[in-house]
Nucleic acid binder design. Structure first.
Length: 331
DNA sequence: ATGAGATGTATAC
DNA sequence: TATACCTCTCATG
């Protein structure tokens, strides 16, 4: 259940482990059998992430568009090269293996990005290599390719790396033209678009609309990659009432929303975690990360006292999703 | 064991 | 606005 940061991390995994290699494709579940047959045997040549969507190109101008939606996930298995840009600061690893989208949660469980934490409840074991240094588990007995478990819509297999896709909202082949059309409908993504241009686009659209800012932030045509967690947190960080019509949000505040999103997205991609309380002391940070519900300003904190003013955090529906906010701080 | 809920979107009414 | 999609995790018992 990724917001934009996870998709960018997954794309970097594909860049590292599939691009430049020829790929075997299959649909063990059968629901993407025709598409898999078309991909099978081609070389992956490029990967792009825009917002919550990933586009993987194969030779012959064939693109695969993936949107994980709410439950979709990639499982990586095999020998996996970790992209240094997503490796964790402590030098071990960022996410790399398994559940592309659940990496945050996997690491949450142990409180740190350790290999052992990742190994425990997983169905696949993974050799992880950073640069030349092998840090993976020794488990020579594993089968190759790994046995299929559960409903796998698409399996992509490179020489030493396996990626299994489950439960995506979208998994389809596209022509270059269709890819361009899909991307054209998306709002700016700080990791794709020029930051200044993105800021202009975002600001212009928001300042024109009567729609509540809480809906605009979730609208992928307005800005790419923000989901329900980042929405709540961005609004709190801006001390902004979610109901404020876009056109009534002061321009400087709109611009700051965009800049804050660029900041949070970069942190999310780097760390694999939705860190929205950056700037905490080391001690507070450790505390915040220790418990799942202690790491956000307002998200998932209905009825709890606001961390800043003590007012009870409000829960309401907005855009058919749960919105959490502090009615005192956010005006 | 069982069930509710979830970091999302598309479609029908 | 409601529902379907599709899978996993967590809370509950």
């Amino acid at each position: 259940m990724p917001e934009g940061h996870s998709v960018h991390r997954i794309a970097r995994q594909f860049d590292r482990n599939f691009v430049g290699r020829s790929v075997r494709a299959s649909s063990p579940q059968g629901r993407f059998a025709e598409g898999a047959a078309v991909i099978d045997g081609r070389e992956a040549v490029e990967v792009r992430a825009v917002g919550k969507q990933m586009f993987l190109a194969f030779d012959g101008d064939l693109w695969l568009r993936i949107h994980l939606g709410m439950y979709g996930a990639w499982d990586f298995a095999g020998e996996i090269l970790v992209d240094p840009t997503i490796a964790s600061a402590n030098g071990r690893m960022g996410q790399t293996n398994q559940r592309g989208t659940d990496i945050d949660r996997v690491m949450d469980a142990a409180g740190e990005n350790s290999l052992t934490s990742i190994g425990a409840p997983r169905r696949t074991r993974v050799h992880v290599r950073m640069s030349e240094q092998t840090t993976g588990l020794a488990d020579d007995a594993d089968e190759w390719p790994p046995p299929v478990v559960g409903q796998v819509r698409l399996r992509l297999l490179a020489e030493q790396t396996c990626a299994d896709l489950r439960g995506p909202t979208a998994c389809q082949l596209q022509s270059p033209h269709e890819v361009a059309a899909t991307i054209a409908k998306l709002g700016p993504d700080p990791l794709v678009d020029d930051l200044a241009e993105g800021e202009e686009r975002f600001t212009a659209v928001v300042r024109r609309k009567p729609t509540p800012i809480g809906l605009l932030l979730m609208d992928q045509a307005v800005v790419s990659g923000i989901g329900n967690v980042y929405r709540a947190e961005l609004l709190f960080r801006a001390r902004l009432d979610p109901h404020t019509p876009g056109r009534d949000v002061p321009e400087e505040v709109v611009r700051e929303l965009w800049r804050d999103w660029t900041r949070l997205l970069a942190i999310g991609v780097e760390t694999g975690q939705m860190m929205t309380m950056d700037g905490l002391s080391a001690g507070d940070y450790r505390k915040a990360m220790a418990h799942r519900d202690d790491r956000h300003w307002v998200y998932h904190r209905a009825g709890l006292p606001c961390r800043v003013c003590g007012t009870q955090i409000v829960l309401e529906e907005m855009g058919a999703r749960k919105l959490y906010w502090c009615p005192s701080c956010q005006r």
